[in-house]
Design a protein around this nucleic acid. Structure first.
Length: 485
RNA sequence: GGCGGCAUAGCCAAGUGGCAAGGCAGCGGUCUGCAAAACCGUUAUUCACCGGUUCAAAUCCGGUUGCCGCCUCCA
C-alpha cells in the first residue's frame, strides 16, 4: 500500500505522488514570534515533525522549510509595550521557541527562513502582481485584488459574494473592494520599514510564505502544512498570490492539523485558555506530551486535560518499564546488545519483525495514523511483556528492537529508561510534600523490616508512602518506587 | 447569516460497506509474606436519534438533535 494523504484542497485522501520522484518538498507555517509557545503550537510542530520523519523513513529526500514570522503587528505592539525594538522581541522569542521545542524532540527542518530576510523576494513578487493586474497601489499600500483571481476560495470553500455577506470585514478606505488584502503596508512612525517602489513600508502577512516557499522549494512544491485556522484567509491568500504571480498552483497537498482544545474549546491566546509548553514541561516529561498528542489522529481535535495527560504518562511508563527490564537483563548478559545506541532516528540493526513493521506502515500510509500505530505498539508491548518470564533471546531482541525503531520514527522511546524514570520522579515528587531522601530512607527502613520478617512494620511504611502518593514495587533487583498514577 | 467538522463502553481513542484495535479505570485469577508491577481472563448484541439504499452499514444517502471550528490575529 502506498502513502495517502488527506488534501484539504480536494477534501479527500489522495495517493501521494511527489512532483519529483524520490524527493519531497514541504513547507509548514511556523510561528509569529511575539510570545511563548503553547501546546497548540507544540501539536503543529510535532505533527509535521512526524510527517517529516516518516517521509524520510520511506526513503524520500525531504526538503522541509518552516518559517518564522518576525515582522507583524503583534510583535510591534509588544516591542512598544516593553520599550524595545521589534527585532529584539523577535530574536528573544525565536530563542524561546527552541528552548521549548527541543525537549519535545522536534528535529530541525532543512531550512528556517525569517520573513525579514526575504523582503526583496516579496517586493519582486508584489511588483509582478501589479504588472499582471492582480494588485494595485493605494497611498503607499499595495492590495491584492481578490476579484481579479477567479479561482479564489478554492481551498476554504468560500465564495466571494458570501464573504461580503459575512460582514466581518474591516472597512478600509484605501481598498477598492472590502475583500482585498494587503500585500504591502506603508509604515507608520515607530514601525519597522523597508524601502520599496511604493515608499517606506513593510510586507503583509500572507506574502512572506508565498515568497519564501517559492524561493526554497520552487513555484510548485509537494506539501504545505499548518494549523486548520490558517486555511482561511492565510492559505487561501497564499494560493491566490502565488498562482496569480507564477501561473502555477503552488502546492499539491494541503495538510492541516486539528486544534488542541480545553474543555472542547480551541486553545488560543485570544480566549486565554492556553497552557504554555514551558509550564506543562514542569509537570510532565516532554515525551509524555508528545506521546499524548500522537495518540489521536492529527486532523482530529484533541482535548488537553490533566487526566488525559496522566493516562498518556501511565501508558508511556509501560513502554519504558519494558526497556528498563531489557537493559537490566542485557547488563547481566553480555551477549545481548544495548538497545540505546544513540539518536532515535537511527534504525537499529536486527529490528525486522516484518509483521509489526507492516502494520506500522499500513497505519502511517493511511494519512499518518499515529493513533493506530500506538495501538499496534501497545499490542506488541503486551506480547513482549508476556515473554518476560522466559529466556531473553533472539526473537525477543528482534521484537523489542522493532518496537524501538518504530518509536524512533515517531520521535518516541529515545530516552535512557533509568533517566526517564528518574526524571518522572523528580517532576512528580515536587508536589507531594516529601523529599527523595526521605523516600529512600523509608525504603531502607522497610527493607530492614522485611529482612527480619517484621511484616506489619514493613506494611506500615508502605502505607505511609502510599498516602503521600508513592507506590512501591518489590522486584528481584530491589525495591523500586514511583509516583502514583 | 455563509462554509466546514465531529458524535464509538465509566473516561480517552482507532476503525469509513462484511462478525467493534488499543489505552486508562473496573472485576475475577496467576505470581507475591501481603502488595505493586507483569501476565491470563473479563468489561459495547452495539457505534447520538429517525428513516432509506444494500445479501450485508458505526461505515453510504436523507432528515433531526447536540457540540465544535472558520468567516478578525491565531498552530
Amino acid at each position: 500500500m502506498n502513502l495517502s494523504i488527506y488534501n484539504t484542497f480536494t477534501k479527500r485522501k489522495e495517493e501521494f505522488k511527489p512532483i519529483q520522484e524520490g524527493e519531497v518538498k514541504m513547507y509548514v507555517c511556523g510561528v509569529t514570534v511575539y510570545d511563548l509557545c503553547h501546546i497548540g503550537h507544540a501539536r503543529a510542530a510535532i505533527v509535521f515533525d512526524v510527517i517529516y520523519r516518516y517521509l524520510r523513513y520511506l526513503g524520500y529526500k525531504v526538503t522541509y522549510v518552516r518559517n518564522f514570522t518576525d515582522v507583524d503587528d503583534k510583535i510591534i505592539k509588544r516591542a512598544h509595550e516593553e520599550g524595545v525594538s521589534p527585532e529584539e522581541i523577535a530574536e528573544r522569542y525565536i530563542r524561546e521557541f527552541y528552548k521549548d521545542m527541543n525537549p519535545l524532540n522536534i528535529e530541525p527542518p532543512t531550512c528556517e527562513p525569517k520573513a525579514t530576510m526575504h523582503i526583496a523576494e516579496m517586493i519582486d513578487m508584489i511588483k509582478k502582481l501589479i504588472e499582471k493586474g492582480y494588485a494595485y497601489q493605494s497611498d503607499g499600500d499595495v492590495f491584492f485584488s481578490v476579484r481579479s483571481f477567479s479561482e479564489y476560495g478554492g481551498l476554504s470553500g468560500k465564495n466571494t459574494d458570501e464573504l461580503i455577506a459575512g460582514a466581518r470585514i474591516e472597512i478600509n478606505e484605501k481598498k477598492n473592494d472590502p475583500l482585498d488584502f494587503a500585500l504591502w503596508k506603508a509604515s507608520k512612525s515607530g514601525e519597522p520599514w523597508w524601502e520599496s517602489p511604493w515608499g517606506k513600508g513593510r510586507p503583509g502577512w500572507h506574502i512572506e510564505c508565498s515568497a519564501m516557499g517559492q524561493k526554497y522549494l520552487g513555484q510548485s512544491f509537494d506539501i504545505h502544512g499548518g494549523g486548520k485556522d490558517l486555511i482561511f484567509p492565510h492559505h487561501e491568500n497564499e494560493i491566490a498570490q502565488s498562482c496569480a504571480a507564477t501561473g502555477n498552483p503552488p502546492v499539491r497537498y494541503w495538510v492541516h492539523n486539528g486544534f488542541v482544545n480545553i474543555n472542547k474549546e480551541k486553545m488560543s491566546k485570544s480566549l486565554g485558555n492556553f497552557f504554555t509548553i514551558r509550564d506543562m514541561v514542569k509537570r510532565f516529561n516532554p515525551e509524555v506530551i508528545r506521546f499524548f498528542l500522537l495518540s489521536s489522529h492529527y486532523r482530529s481535535p484533541i482535548d488537553f486535560s490533566d487526566q488525559n495527560l496522566n493516562e498518556a504518562r501511565i501508558n508511556l511508563d509501560r513502554f519504558y518499564d519494558l526497556f528498563l527490564f531489557y537493559d537490566m537483563v542485557a547488563k547481566e548478559n553480555p551477549t545481548l546488545p544495548p538497545l540505546t545506541k544513540g539518536k532515535d532516528e537511527e534504525i537499529l540493526e536486527g529490528g525486522s519483525d516484518d509483521e509489526l513493521m507492516q502494520r506500522f506502515e499500513e497505519a502511517m500510509n493511511d494519512d499518518f495514523n499515529t493513533a493506530q500505530v500506538i495501538g499496534h505498539l501497545n499490542s506488541e508491548l503486551h506480547h513482549l511483556n508476556s515473554k518476560r518470564g522466559g529466556e531473553v533471546r533472539d526473537e525477543f531482541l528482534r521484537e523489542i528492537t522493532t518496537l524501538k525503531n518504530i518509536g524512533g520514527v515517531l520521535g518516541l522511546f529515545g530516552q535512557d529508561p533509568v533517566e526517564y524514570f528518574e526524571k518522572e520522579k523528580s517532576i512528580g515528587i515536587a508536589s507531594l510534600g516529601i523529599s527523595e531522601e526521605e523516600v529512600l530512607r523509608l525504603i531502607d527502613e522497610r527493607e530492614k523490616a522485611r529482612r527480619e520478617k517484621r511484616w506489619s512494620d514493613a506494611d506500615r511504611i508502605r502505607n505511609e508512602l502510599s498516602l503521600k502518593g508513592i507506590i512501591l514495587e518489590d522486584t528481584p533487583r530491589g525495591t523500586k518506587w514511583k509516583i502514583k498514577g
